[in-house]
């Protein structure tokens, strides 16, 4: 092994002799990333402050946001989409992540047989495209086909069946649960990984102290996997506030019935791209994208500065 001093001399020489290499190595990634991702993002934020009048783009300050939040033509659908989006997120946090944690806890039972098979099978839905997932569930939940009434009949709950996707009261919950079904594999895998990383000695020490089973899970394992739960929460947050595809495939761009499943992603699509009688509006599209950006950014910042810092990292 070379010593630290030698390495730093090497590095210092690098700086003088070979600095062009660094640029060559960085340039392609930097160029594509900046040109296709960062600049359009900034341009979108900028466009939200402009509007088109008489074919001329003029600076309007925050007028677009005032329209979005307050103008009767926009505000109702915006607040509706925002509220739906929060419900969508809440259902994921309350259903997807607890199920993911439970499955991971079951999978990490020591000496479990067929563990690899279960993991592979349960992760499969995550890989399917929204188009497949959306249409499969649309067929299964369809009253025409009768698969779900038949299955409910098997457990004696046939009377509960109704066309959930078609009713304004239940459509959002149904779509959210379809999304949960698809994505439960991600928390499951990440928590499973975190549980594998808990050292044997800690669990053995707990067993010596008589902490086993349920109380071992709540008192020992859960605190140790909290950082992973934090990561999953922020991934869920970003994914949910950026979601579009599933609602689009299950309920169409209008996010029916009667806007009951409209979330920010579908609202952005309709606003920016236009749909049926509605004409696409670039400025308002950029405004909605900016609002989504600010929501996601504040979520990420909250996670990075408030949650992650307070979380204790255990070093073994």
């Amino acid at each position: 092994m070379s010593t630290v001093a030698e390495v730093s001399i090497d590095r210092a020489e690098d700086r003088h002799r070979r600095r062009w290499h660094i640029l060559v190595f960085l340039a392609p990634a930097l160029l594509v990333y900046t040109a296709v991702m960062i600049l359009p993002l900034i341009e979108t934020l900028r466009l939200s402050l402009f509007n088109v009048k008489d074919n001329q783009s003029i600076f309007v300050g925050f007028a677009n946001f005032q329209v979005l939040f307050g103008d009767p033509r926009w505000a109702a659908s915006f607040w509706n989409a925002l509220r739906n989006n929060f419900v969508f997120f809440l259902i994921h946090m309350l259903v997807q992540n607890p199920i993911g944690v439970a499955l991971a806890a079951l999978l990490s039972v020591p000496k479990l047989r067929f563990g690899a098979f279960y993991r592979t099978a349960m992760f499969l839905p995550t890989l399917l495209s929204f188009v497949i997932v959306g249409f499969i569930w649309k067929l299964i939940l369809s009253p025409i086909w009768g698969v779900s009434p038949f299955l409910l009949d098997l457990v004696g709950l046939k009377s509960l069946f109704s066309p959930w996707l078609g009713k304004p009261g239940s459509a959002l919950i149904a779509v959210s649960l379809i999304s949960v079904w698809q994505y439960v594999g991600i928390p499951m895998m990440l928590i499973y990984a975190a549980m594998l990383n808990i050292p044997e000695e800690v669990l053995e020490a707990a067993e010596c102290d008589g902490v086993t089973g349920w109380s071992q899970f709540w008192k020992i394992k859960l605190p140790l996997i909290l950082p992973s739960i934090g990561i999953i929460s922020i991934l869920t947050f970003v994914g949910n506030f950026n979601a579009f595809d599933l609602v689009y495939t299950v309920q169409g761009a209008l996010a029916g019935p009667d806007g009951a499943t409209d979330i920010l992603g579908t609202l952005l699509y309709r606003t920016f791209f236009g749909f049926q009688l509605q004409i696409g509006d670039k400025s308002m599209g950029a405004t909605i994208a900016t609002v989504m950006f600010l929501i996601i950014l504040s979520g990420v910042c909250l996670y990075l500065f408030a949650i992650q810092r307070r979380m204790r990292r255990y070093q073994f």
């Binding site: 993002l41 979108t44 950026n242 599209g285 950029a286 990420v300």
Partner: peptide
């Protein structure tokens, strides 16, 4: 963390 989708308006324009 920031989805590229949010820049769609300007990406399409570009």
């Amino acid at each position: 963390m920031i989805p590229i989708r949010l820049g769609t308006v300007a990406i399409l324009q570009g």
